[in-house]
Simulated scan of single mutants.
Amino acid sequence: MTTRQFSPPARTRPGRTVSRSRRAVRRVQPRFTLPAVAAPKSPGDRYELRAPIGRGSGSEVWHAHDHVLDRPVAVKVMDPEHAARPRARDELRDEARRMASIAHPHVVRVHDFGDRLCDTRPTPFITMDLLDGRNLHELAGDERLSLLRALRIGAQIADAVSAVHASGLVHLDVKPANVMVTADRATVVDFGISVPAGSCVSPARPSVVLGTPAYVAPERLTGGLVTPACDVYSLGILLFWLFTGRLPWTVHTTTQLLVAHVRSEPEPFPRRRGVPGEVAELGDRCLAKDPAARPDAREVAGTLARAFLAEA
């Protein structure tokens, strides 16, 4: 089989980034300092934070070492400003519990939760797998992905999303920056705004209402319930981006993008670039305005997996 190559253009959409290069930890400038945990003073100081590797809304992720189990881990640490909020600890603990409720090879594993990394101040944190790879947003922007690899990555993401839904949750932030890609697998990360299926969108929580504007489902902008179909819509946009290198609308501002989600029909999935016809048809269904018209994540995973096997 001749492997078809396509090279998506550089991405400009902002997104939270949590990444680690294949050969060395990607060092980023820390947004805040935690001097008391820069190096452990005693065996009781379990986690040694060695280098920041990414940041999100109100937290940073560090490459760290677990001195009890003698292994590298990733530690998500809430920044001091957010940690001072009344429910900050409970919110991060709930995120850890949601992650721990899902056992799947393509969903990041959580190891521990705590609220004090050092003796100086409360510092809520989660420890999880340290993934030796890059996030999909960076990877597909810098490397040429074969059609075969794109199908495999898409199938693994959809399989992970299906497992999230089977646990009764909706991720709400499925996007390339929240997918870590290693040599042999894609892993979905960041459950910071995930909620139980059937939840109401709360206007008091803007971050939950929107998530990432480029990937938000239209019903979340019009007050609809949060259902698994929200993630399937986001997955459809991710797949369109993966195969074309762009979004399915031509827009120039965030406002135009949000209006497009609700009112404008997306560009059809490409029937070129070697994308199998059944994958293109499935992608179009994922982007339906009506949540009931979308396939479920399990169907998406199955279709992509079959297309991968046919191309292999």
Rank of each mutant, 00 (worst) to 15 (best):
E311K: 04
A312M: 11
P122C: 06
T187N: 04
F243V: 02
P40E: 01
P40V: 05
E311T: 06
E138V: 14
T12R: 01
A84C: 03
V18N: 06
T182V: 12
W241E: 02
L148W: 08
A288Q: 10
V75E: 04
L257Y: 03
G198E: 11
A312Y: 00
K175T: 05
V18S: 03
P30G: 08
C118T: 13
P40R: 03
T12L: 07
R298Q: 01
D190S: 05
P124G: 03
R23A: 14
D284P: 01
A51P: 01
L258W: 08
T120R: 12
A163P: 06
D112K: 08
L34E: 12
F32H: 11
P213A: 14
L221A: 12
L130G: 03
T120D: 11
V164I: 15
A260Q: 09
A155I: 11
D119N: 13
P266T: 13
R4T: 13
V251I: 13
P268M: 10
L117V: 10
V279S: 01
V275F: 11
P268V: 05
G274L: 11
D231L: 07
Q156I: 15
L239E: 02
C286S: 02
G168V: 14
N135T: 14
T120A: 14
L49N: 09
W241C: 08
D159N: 05
A24W: 06
A217L: 09
P266K: 00
R26D: 09
V279M: 13
G211M: 04
L92N: 05
P295Y: 10
R285D: 15
E219P: 01
H171E: 11
G56I: 15
D79T: 09
R185I: 02
P266D: 09
P124K: 03
T182G: 06
L117H: 07
T253A: 02
L130N: 05
H104K: 07
T254N: 10
P43H: 14
S199K: 09
H111S: 15
A83W: 15
F6Q: 09
A163W: 12
D129L: 02
L69S: 05
T227H: 04
G302P: 02
E138D: 08
Y215S: 11
P124A: 07
G245P: 05
V37M: 06
P213T: 12
R46C: 05
T303H: 06
M128P: 10
G58I: 01
T12E: 12
R306L: 13
R263L: 13
V68S: 08
R273N: 03
A301G: 03
D159P: 03
A260R: 10
C118P: 00
L242R: 01
P295Q: 03
A166D: 11
A293V: 08
P295N: 07
T303S: 03
A214M: 08
D94Y: 14
R98A: 02
P203C: 08
G274H: 05
D231H: 02
D94E: 07
E95S: 02
P228W: 00
A103R: 07
D132E: 13
D70R: 14
R31P: 01
F191R: 03
L221I: 09
Y47V: 10
P124V: 05
M1Y: 00
R98K: 15
H104N: 08
S167Y: 12
T244Q: 09
T253S: 08
A160Q: 08
S57D: 04
R205I: 08
W241F: 13
V189A: 04
A197I: 14
D94C: 01
A307Y: 13
R31H: 09
P124W: 15
L242F: 15
V181F: 01
A183R: 15
P248A: 06
P35G: 12
